[in-house]
């Protein structure tokens, strides 16, 4: 059997396993898988920006939370049907990203990180303090996934299939974008903005568009999050979640989109298992993260690539680390 056919068979088997999941997996693990999927989407929006564009953004969770809030507010407070509420939620999240992008893409590296952190905190503050709109501390509750064409997405099985489809589709589209001329230009901007500028590329526009695309992806994750949880309150978009997304993405490796899925899976499982053993599970996750930064800054997928290269007797390399992605200093 050729290796190509083997890969094809493996992919086919994986697809069959994923699609048939609701029929054999105990329901709690199905719940966990749903969570892993929509948080993977959120992590992908981070990974796409950090890995392809060199932009480490702590504002993705704010976009995600905005989309979740808008969906919850429209559906429960104003009786808007899902068919209008979902597009409006996606549009609001993406619009927020478009506004933040104006400020954020002017900066690079650590400045970008700081500014997105601050912008993200604004949204958290508004969610917390603007009580008449967001319900403040309580948040907005009572949201339920709709029934569409006779399919009740309230049931975990159909909800799972929907999230799976959305994640695969979004991942595939992002993959296409990464390998398109736009994606290559984005890589160029990441590695050497000045050269790209000299070559006549609209550097800021490219970064801006990437930021908006990532915003749309985060908004999609926000919609699933809101329907899954049924309650949206400020903890949906607090800094803890931002740091969490950062941790899972770096752990998985920002070099490829699949890293987002791997990182999310590992941390969600780790959290579920370790939290039963010790209440200090955040310390353990923090340590794992610290060790990743120190010893495997290119994450799990990066390590894997390096290993594969070594096996194939290619030039050994540690793979790109987060610091190789983008110039350090800010252009002004």
């Amino acid at each position: 059997m050729t290796s190509r056919a083997l890969v094809f068979l493996l992919v086919l088997a994986a697809a069959a396993a994923l699609i048939s999941l609701p029929w054999w997996m105990p329901s709690f693990y199905l719940t966990l898988t749903i969570r892993i999927l929509f948080f993977s989407l959120l992590a992908m929006s981070f990974t796409f920006l950090a890995g392809q564009g060199g932009m480490v953004s702590l504002a993705q969770v704010a976009v995600f939370g905005t989309s979740a809030y808008v969906l919850a507010i429209l559906s429960t407070q104003h009786g808007v049907a899902w068919s209008a509420a979902v597009p409006l939620a996606l549009a609001s999240g993406t619009t927020l990203a478009a506004v933040f992008g104006v400020f954020a893409v002017r900066t690079l590296g650590i400045y970008f990180l700081m500014i997105t952190l601050a912008l993200g905190q604004i949204v958290w503050g508004v969610a917390f303090q603007w009580v008449s709109m967001t319900g403040g501390f309580d948040g907005i509750g009572g949201l339920r996934a709709p029934t569409v064409l006779g399919v009740a997405f309230r049931s975990p099985e159909s909800f799972y299939l929907l999230v799976l489809a959305a994640t695969v589709l979004t991942g595939w589209l992002l993959h296409r974008i990464i390998n398109s001329p736009f994606g290559l230009a984005l890589n160029g901007v990441r590695d050497s903005p000045t050269r790209m500028q000299a070559l006549g590329y609209p550097v800021s526009l490219i970064r801006y568009l990437a930021f908006v695309v990532a915003g749309l992806v985060a908004s999609i994750a926000g919609v699933f999050f809101a329907y899954f949880t049924g309650v949206v309150n400020p903890s949906a978009l607090d800094l803890f979640r931002s740091v969490w997304v950062l941790v899972v993405s770096i752990l998985g490796g920002v070099g490829s989109l699949i890293g987002a899925v791997i990182g999310t899976t590992i941390v969600v499982l780790l959290q579920t298992v370790v939290s039963q053993i010790t209440p200090r599970y955040m310390t353990i996750i923090g340590l794992v993260f610290l060790l990743t930064i120190l010893f495997a800054p290119d994450g799990i997928t990066g390590r894997f690539h390096a290993l594969r290269k070594r096996l194939k007797r290619e030039r050994p390399s540690g793979g790109p680390t987060i610091d190789d992605r983008g110039p350090v200093e800010r252009e002004v």
Partner: peptide
Amino acid sequence: DVEEFVTRVRALHER
């Protein structure tokens, strides 16, 4: 965190 709560309460029941 409500989201964490919903997941954990499901774990208590389903797992």
